[in-house]
């Protein structure tokens, strides 16, 4: 073999010229986001599997609590009960020993975008009629266009501001309840709990498989990035990066298709014949019943307020 070693492999590499510093490519940024999927998934699984009170409660109780409270949130028409529900979820979050700061960072971020920003235009008297509490613009005369009428004085009305506050609170409450359940329940348990809502087993199986393979392929993408990084001696141009990404997308697609066939064969090999059967969940314990009853009673109180 040694006689066959090519001459260039016996040479020492040349000394490199100095060429300045590299900037982070968009691939690298994208891959960091992919890696974050795995990290977030791991953290969700870790916090949801902790030995705290709410983490130990049966997932079915928590899924029913989620649905019941989201319904209450959308039925309430006053700010006070909405705010009280928010406080109630904060207390539950503290009891579950979740990281309150990162929890409410998410709630506030999505609440701001999907609640406040989306509803903000409706605060103006152009959309919601009422008493102006904050004048913004004064025109020389009112304008009319098709079915729309722009008044002379434009500003935020009391009724509009109230509506925006209500919608923002509703979004934040619904989000905090959903995240609370997600952070205190491992994802596979949530899926199984959906059985109480009579979601078909085959659908549950598809969600479970899809969730699992998101992580597997996210890991593959991360590894592929390391592979190209190991052979790059400089900066990769954006067009080369796009070519690489297109090639890797095709590869992932092929691999996914092959994996899909393998999984199906593995299922057939273990007796799959078209019907998906997920094992029956364990019976609810006294602790689950009591917690369920307390949460239900709290919901009734919020409904009556």
């Amino acid at each position: 073999m040694e006689n066959k070693i090519p001459g260039f492999l016996l040479e020492k590499p040349s000394s490199p010229p100095a060429m300045g510093r590299l900037r982070t490519s968009f691939i690298e940024n994208g891959i960091h986001h992919v890696a974050n999927i795995i990290k977030t998934g791991y953290i969700q699984w870790e916090t949801a599997s902790e030995d705290n009170f709410f983490q130990q409660i049966d997932a079915r109780v928590k899924v029913l609590f989620l649905l019941f409270f989201v319904l209450i949130v959308s039925l309430k028409k006053d700010i006070v009960p909405e705010a009280l529900i928010g406080v109630f979820v904060l207390i539950l979050t503290l009891m579950a020993r979740l990281d309150v700061i990162s929890f409410y960072k998410r709630v506030l971020f999505f609440g701001f975008i999907f609640g406040f920003l989306i509803a903000l235009p409706s605060a103006f008297n152009v959309i919601t009629k009422g008493t102006i509490i904050l004048p913004v613009l004064s025109l020389s005369r009112p304008h009319g266009f098709w079915i729309y009428r722009i008044p002379k004085e434009i500003g935020i009305t009391r009724e509009g501001a109230y509506g925006v506050a209500m919608l923002t609170l509703r979004v934040m409450d619904s989000l905090s309840i959903s995240l609370f359940v997600l952070y205190t329940t491992p994802f596979p348990e949530i899926i199984k709990a959906l059985k109480v809502l009579k979601v078909p087993d085959s659908f549950l199986m598809i969600i479970t498989l899809a969730y699992k393979y998101i992580f597997i392929f996210a890991k593959t993408v991360e590894d592929m990035h390391l592979a190209i990084k190991g052979r790059l001696a400089g900066h990769i141009s954006d067009s080369d990066a796009r070519k690489w990404i297109a090639g890797r997308m095709a590869f992932i697609f092929k691999k996914t298709r092959l994996r899909c066939e393998e999984i199906f064969n593995a299922m057939l090999g273990r007796g799959f014949s078209g019907d998906v059967r997920i094992y029956r969940a364990r019976r609810l314990r006294a602790r689950d019943w009591i917690t369920g009853a307390v949460l239900f009673m709290s919901g009734i109180i919020f409904l009556l307020i």
Binding site: P13, P17, R21, L22, L226, A227, G230, R231, G234
Partner: peptide, 27 residues
């Protein structure tokens, strides 16, 4: 390794062969 010259110096001298060849082959 953010320094282009040093990155080239290093990559020219250290080669890594992955366990999963599928990951490594992308051309």
């Amino acid at each position: 390794l953010r320094d282009k010259g040093f990155l080239r110096f290093f990559r020219e001298r250290v080669g890594y062969v992955f366990q999963d060849s599928d990951i490594q082959l992308f051309c």
